[in-house]
Design a protein around this nucleic acid. Structure first.
Lengths: 333, 333
DNA sequence: GATCTTAATGCAAACGTTTGCAATGATGTT
DNA sequence: AACATCATTGCAAACGTTTGCATTAAGATC
């Protein structure tokens, strides 16, 4: 506090060696005699010395930082508070740390339009992980073309000039719907917005199952929030009565909103209506009835995202990849 | 990409001015003629120039970065996925950005024991926001004593050498409990861990209301997870039957876990048992019955945290402060 | 004893900004 | 005409690391 910041040259003087020796010693460079290294490292610990990251980054041309940017549409109101998105971020954080990198949490507000300029040229991060493919991929594509090491959490089937990691949304949608049908549903309802890349795949899976089983089906396009789901189910029931007996919701939050609307009208879940969600957020198992859902393995995905990003940093190119998802059957179906 | 990174001196040459002029122009320094400034700024935009943050930070001795560290006990299993914690982080992110700072998302794993060394001496951030006071405050206190600009989300009543911002937990606990009693409950149950600073205050409020109204009360000490709540309510019912008619849960997640256990045994909420939670997470209004709770104004708190941190950066000292919380009455009570 | 190898360390340049001070030219004042 | 003032710009140092290359000392080889 009172004393001025210790720098490497001070530490070196204290140890009676040159600055370069001190630097190498702290980086465990075998050029330096083992005893010397250990002596200097001990001294550093004793004096609470920390390398100045700004100086180091300037010299090294590397930041050891990965930026995570949450890519939400301004228009739709899927908020940053969506527990699933935040879980993804949290898992990415762990994965990033395990590789010795730090996590800069960013968003369109800070990064603006020119992600390459802001993060890479600006030496704020070595690479970018985008959470949420969104409807509009221009900025991602521009960044990738400018040479930004970048990976995206989204729908891996989308063809793009950057790798995308995400669940097999088609299979997820397919197996959720098949499960609903197997449980006796014959008038199905899809709740979500197929214009969104990942949700579009889930909807494709839904349609595929519907056609194969030759059952009735309808789709209501809503924002990805529980409020929108609650409102739309209420409106539908009011206008047309109970015209469905199975719901595939594009996310758990949506499913829970629908569930609430049904329960308020004493429509029994799963007897009158079966529901399956998507994501398997913490709330899914604590709702009543507990929510059947397609579990996304965010942990595995986060690890893959980071690995792919790091391999880009070392010059390799890599492809999109799907992470297996699995049906979790609970009481709602 | 192919071309090498543009630096300030290149931009200056392109504009036919010196590096210093270019630097000042980009920073909108009025020393430079207005037309020159605008010309250079336009040129910078045209060429996608971005200042090298590493070099700038080294020279300025400032990072314009704020570190947020989620402070969880290793022992208890309140996970990073707790939606409330993540909401706090997300609100802090917004508040930080509004002030022109970036957010470094960190944790004990990266920062280790010596937060001052890691963040401040290491020039990774200008200040630290700690989310979650935890049970053990040694590291926070040590960092503060070492001169780290630091603020904490926690219980503002705790006396400490750093400012703490948080809800008025005592009042929150008091009004939640009074509400339960007003709704007819006379055998109360507190669910949570009073050893945790914030929860301790909530429990004090609970006890205060209980004594004033002279009603029965018991406390079960559990981890702050819905799973623990679910398990403990089940165990209690199995062992002793329904010995309570009102629950004050220390968090919404805990309340929802308890709610599920009750519903599974067909105990009516709110007729047989009234429940009030704490936090007002998104799930509270979507559960069935919708959960009454004490709403914490995380947005206001986040703004306060950032303001207090920034005023520390400009040398002022500041005090802890409480943010008003409010009872939100829904169907569970 | 002279030369060669090897191990350990030091010297000094470079990374790309920002900023105090000096320099320049133009304008106003006596 | 000499001098002071002002607006605008440039020079060069400093921020604290890391690392290629040079240097030194010590042991090995002839």
């Amino acid at each position: 506090m009172g004393t001025t910041q210790l720098k490497l040259s001070d530490l070196a003087r204290l140890a009676g060696v040159s600055t370069s020796t001190a630097s190498r010693a702290l980086n465990d460079n075998p050029l330096i005699k083992k005893e010397t290294r250990e002596r200097i490292q001990a001294l550093a610990k004793e004096h609470h010395f920390s390398v100045n990251a700004a100086a180091s980054r300037l010299r090294m041309q590397k930041t050891k930082v990965i930026a995570v940017i949450i890519n939400l549409e301004a228009e739709t109101k899927q908020s940053v508070d969506d527990p699933f998105l935040l879980k993804v971020v949290s898992d990415i954080n762990r994965a990033v740390n395990r590789k010795g990198y730090e996590l800069l949490l960013s968003n369109s507000y800070m990064a603006g339009e020119d992600w390459h300029g802001y993060f890479i040229s600006g030496r704020r991060a070595d690479g970018v992980i985008v959470v949420g493919q969104g409807k509009e991929q221009a900025r991602i594509e521009r960044a990738a073309r400018a040479g930004t090491p970048i990976v995206v959490w989204g729908d891996p089937k989308t063809s793009a000039n950057y790798p995308i990691v995400g669940s097999d949304n088609f299979i997820g949608g397919l197996s959720a719907t098949e499960h609903l049908i197997a449980k006796g549903a014959s008038k199905l309802l899809f709740l979500g917005d197929p214009g969104h890349a990942e949700l579009g795949e889930r909807y494709r899976g839904f349609c595929h199952a519907v056609e194969k089983a030759k059952v009735e089906a309808q789709m209501i396009k809503i924002d990805i929030t529980s409020e929108a789901a609650y409102a739309s189910i209420n409106a539908l029931l009011r206008a047309q009565g109970l015209t469905f007996d199975g719901i595939f919701a594009c996310s758990d939050m949506v499913a829970l909103g629908a569930l609430k609307a049904l329960k308020e009208r004493y429509i029994s879940v799963p007897n009158d209506v079966r529901i399956v969600g998507f994501d398997d957020i913490a709330m899914a198992q604590i709702s009543f009835p507990a929510l059947s859902t397609i579990k996304q393995d965010t942990n595995a995905a986060a690890q893959l995202l980071v690995e792919k990003l790091l391999s880009q940093l070392s010059g390799e190119t890599c492809a999109s990849q799907e992470v297996p998802s699995s049906l979790v059957v609970r009481q709602s179906s």
